[in-house]
Design a protein around this nucleic acid. Sequence first.
DNA 1: CATGAATGAGGCTTCATTCAT
DNA 2: CATGAATGAAGCCTCATTCAT
Lengths: 208, 208, 208, 208
Amino acid sequence: MSHRTAATPIGAEYPVEVSSPRRTAARGRIDKRAAILDAAFTVFARRGYDQACVQEIADEAGVAKPTVYNHLTDKETLFHHATETVAEAVRTESLAVVERLREPGDLHVALAEVGIGLLRIYADDRSRALRRLTGSAGCAWIDEALADRFARLCLAGRLRQCDPAVAAEQFLALLTGPWEGRSRQESTVDLQAIVAAAVDTFLRAFGG
Amino acid sequence: MSHRTAATPIGAEYPVEVSSPRRTAARGRIDKRAAILDAAFTVFARRGYDQACVQEIADEAGVAKPTVYNHLTDKETLFHHATETVAEAVRTESLAVVERLREPGDLHVALAEVGIGLLRIYADDRSRALRRLTGSAGCAWIDEALADRFARLCLAGRLRQCDPAVAAEQFLALLTGPWEGRSRQESTVDLQAIVAAAVDTFLRAFGG
Amino acid sequence: MSHRTAATPIGAEYPVEVSSPRRTAARGRIDKRAAILDAAFTVFARRGYDQACVQEIADEAGVAKPTVYNHLTDKETLFHHATETVAEAVRTESLAVVERLREPGDLHVALAEVGIGLLRIYADDRSRALRRLTGSAGCAWIDEALADRFARLCLAGRLRQCDPAVAAEQFLALLTGPWEGRSRQESTVDLQAIVAAAVDTFLRAFGG
Amino acid sequence: MSHRTAATPIGAEYPVEVSSPRRTAARGRIDKRAAILDAAFTVFARRGYDQACVQEIADEAGVAKPTVYNHLTDKETLFHHATETVAEAVRTESLAVVERLREPGDLHVALAEVGIGLLRIYADDRSRALRRLTGSAGCAWIDEALADRFARLCLAGRLRQCDPAVAAEQFLALLTGPWEGRSRQESTVDLQAIVAAAVDTFLRAFGG
DNA sequence: CATGAATGAGGCTTCATTCAT
DNA sequence: CATGAATGAAGCCTCATTCAT
């Protein structure tokens, strides 16, 4: 069963391998569901929602098609759960990264660390696939958390007086915007350079 | 005639009406092709590539299905031409906007004008649909042109010494990034505010 | 289900009923495939390859269309397997008939027996349909086997010295050629008469 | 416009080029019809009835599709006329060849001449295509004429007493049967050898 | 008449989903 | 529960055939 490996179709997705111990199927018993969700995300990422067929997901998970339907009602349900699982993970990771801004020593350094952390997540295959699949273009989830940190930094005089929400969305924009632009042209993008430029611009504009 | 008007499916697209005199069918004779491409973009924008069915495109264009195939070989070809047509238009408009930076009086004002121009285009339904359909996330086409303008402005001392390419991609990021973030939450976004913030930040970082 | 029972179209095929317990659907479970192949041959024989539509085959087999595709990939694959199955049967029968020449008592009688056996197979509906479908005009498979027998008969002095391959192809030609000619005009053909004439001519020319 | 030149489809036909001055279209004015019939036969021979599409015939004839319909009502009518035209030609040629038996000098030589003449016609591309297209397997038209000649030869004592109809059909069978068999295996068939063997066998069996 | 353009009908194939085991 | 097998619904595409020019 090949599932037409042909040239990526219109609006297609990059190949994405998501986790590791797939195809081992039913390890304990409970995580067959996890295996299915995992496989589902992999396949959705590979083909997009419409082109992904349930059979391929079943194959990828090492189970039979009806088993998929036993655990998750629908193709749609399958999609929601699969993407939500990954989204949750991405959100968690991102929030953890932002936490590093709680007690920044050198602000420049701290922002650079946060920048590279966020951009790494943002540029990761899983995360990119997720954005494409959900049609979301940004990383709105952290805006809030980041704004919180920036608010504190303003109060502490480490950043100039400003609307922390604006600062947050602009900081993120300076990270992700250039990355999108470059990743469309070059296969390997120098994340460090992007982050350096972003932090530089950000601090020139918002530095205390 | 149903074409499942149901709730927008997974990864679906916003409804987008693209041009005006559709359904009027064959005006002259030549523009039947144009009508089809137009209808195609509308339907692709409405449903996404996979969910768009050629029958619906034909209905939208007011012709029979085979007529569509008479003018454009394939669903795929149809897609390429339809999107390319719109892309060309968007590119042209965007470049025209950037031109306004050729002889800027007050730089602040000029940047704000360019910013609002570009953002309007970027936030336009057609343009948004195009990005979603092609999976492109940015507006790479103008990077170059904008960098050209910035290079001149550096030389003229209106901007500080900097890499104009970086300045360009960051200026665009400051416009589009925040817009993406907000448009995901609010239905109406205050473009002026975004532009003002972007220009402010930009000039703080890059002002001569 | 109509399947245009109309007058046989261009280059059409004679109606051929191939086996018996069709439409009884899934007896055991395994023979659903056989039922499909059977139905396929029937329909291909009835309509020819192009005019045969998979829906009609499915109907004839008493299954749904996708079930056909479940068992056999393609219309083409379906065709190859269906015809090959019948071809194999015809070959086997034919070879069995030729075997009777291994220990011939009265050569005249033996040749007549073989002749009538081969001609019955050749004139059979299944076999005729097979030839039409595959575009094969002859019965090349037995040439070889028959030539083997004739070679032995030459050595045994029962036939005159001759090229057994030529003798074989001419014997077959004397059987099938006249049958083709007559079956094109009369609805019932006297096989015995054809065989008698063929054997007579053959033995006059090749008798020892 | 390519008309899928792909690998010959199921039950497909050999490529056959039929006449010469095609594509020159409307020479005088009247023979546009002839050009269409000619092109039709070429295309039918190339693709078979079902796979042949009227557009390709029109292209081959160098006219527009509706022109084809102007001259010949139907695809079916087109087919009948195209094949009948060729059939008539083949019949005429064949009958002319048989005429050589009217005043045979050396019977052996005469039969060999007639044999090679008939077999050349039979093995010709046009004639083969015709048989495939009409599903006819033999050359029944000449049976009668040949039987007439053989009847005279019997009376003249040049052939032994026999049913001339049987003699005729067997003579033809001895020519065409072996040719069919061999042409299925070898690309080039030695017509002379077949004819020699046929005449030899025929005269052994029917010689006066 | 000849043609470019348009269309109704229909065929192959795929896929999400459900039985029966 | 898990699975092999079966199916209804739908989509892309092609083609014979007809208008209007």
